[in-house]
Computed example of a mutant assay.
Amino acid sequence: MYVPPAFREDDLAALHRTMRETRLATLVTATAEGLIATPLPLFLAAEEGPYGTLYGHLARANPQWRLRATGEAMALLMGPDAYVSPSWYPSKQEHQKVVPTWNYIAVHAYGPPEFFEDADRLLAVVSRLTDLHEQPRAEPWAVTDAPADFVRAQLRGIVGLRLPITRLEGKRKVSQNRSAADRAGVAAGLAASERASDRAVAALIPT
């Protein structure tokens, strides 16, 4: 990922926060048959290793886990993003030398992918993922709400993923390279949007 110095994010806590807030990641591996990518919900075990470890699962029928990865795998985790209109820059009125851009937060996590089929490990991963996303609900559903034999049968249709992170790349592009007036203009423009992601980016722009 190309990361200009102004947008580089190296703070591990900030990187982990983005990773936890990302609801759907993309696992990418290079194989002898070419690149292959799968959208996956993942969770971060921050205590495992210097950068943490990602866990998830994919369908047993998905060929990605059977195709040997060449080198490291990469998990793409995107935070909020938004289109930035040049019309929001006060500097537009001064010289017209402005262009559109896109604000976003992104984390790329690299590591050797490990796939596993052990039923108990799979159950633990599925349960933790479910609890994570059900937690905000008034009446959370739990894996234990389903019949145990049904759950065990469903587990046979998936394969677990463990990705111990060897390095992280982070990019936080939120208009911090613009003047204070331009930043304020972008924040106001995005805050007025009907898109929730635009309003989320507005809150991230430094004042």
Rank of each mutant, 00 (worst) to 15 (best):
Y2W: 15
F7A: 09
R8V: 13
D11W: 08
D11T: 01
A13I: 00
H16R: 15
R17S: 14
M19I: 13
R20A: 09
T22P: 10
A25P: 13
A25C: 14
T26Y: 13
L27C: 09
T29K: 13
A30V: 13
E33P: 05
E33C: 03
G34T: 15
A37D: 05
A37V: 06
P41S: 05
L42P: 10
F43C: 00
L44A: 02
A45D: 15
T53R: 12
T53L: 06
Y55N: 04
Y55W: 08
R60L: 13
R60H: 08
A61K: 00
N62T: 01
N62I: 02
W65Q: 01
R66Q: 11
T70L: 15
E72H: 09
M74T: 12
A75S: 10
L76E: 12
L77Q: 11
G79T: 07
D81N: 15
S87F: 03
P90H: 03
K97E: 15
V98W: 01
V98E: 08
P100C: 12
W102V: 01
N103H: 11
V107F: 05
A109C: 01
P112G: 09
E114N: 07
F116C: 07
F116S: 04
F116E: 01
A119Q: 13
L122T: 02
S127L: 00
L129P: 14
T130G: 07
L132M: 14
E134P: 08
R137S: 14
R137Q: 14
A138F: 08
E139G: 04
A142T: 09
D149T: 15
G160N: 06
L161H: 07
R162G: 06
I165D: 07
I165V: 11
R167T: 01
R167I: 09
K173Q: 11
V174E: 02
Q176P: 04
Q176L: 12
R178Q: 15
S179E: 01
A181H: 05
A184Q: 13
G185C: 05
G185H: 01
G185I: 07
G185M: 09
S193N: 02
S193K: 00
S197R: 14
D198T: 05
I205W: 13
P206W: 10
P206D: 09
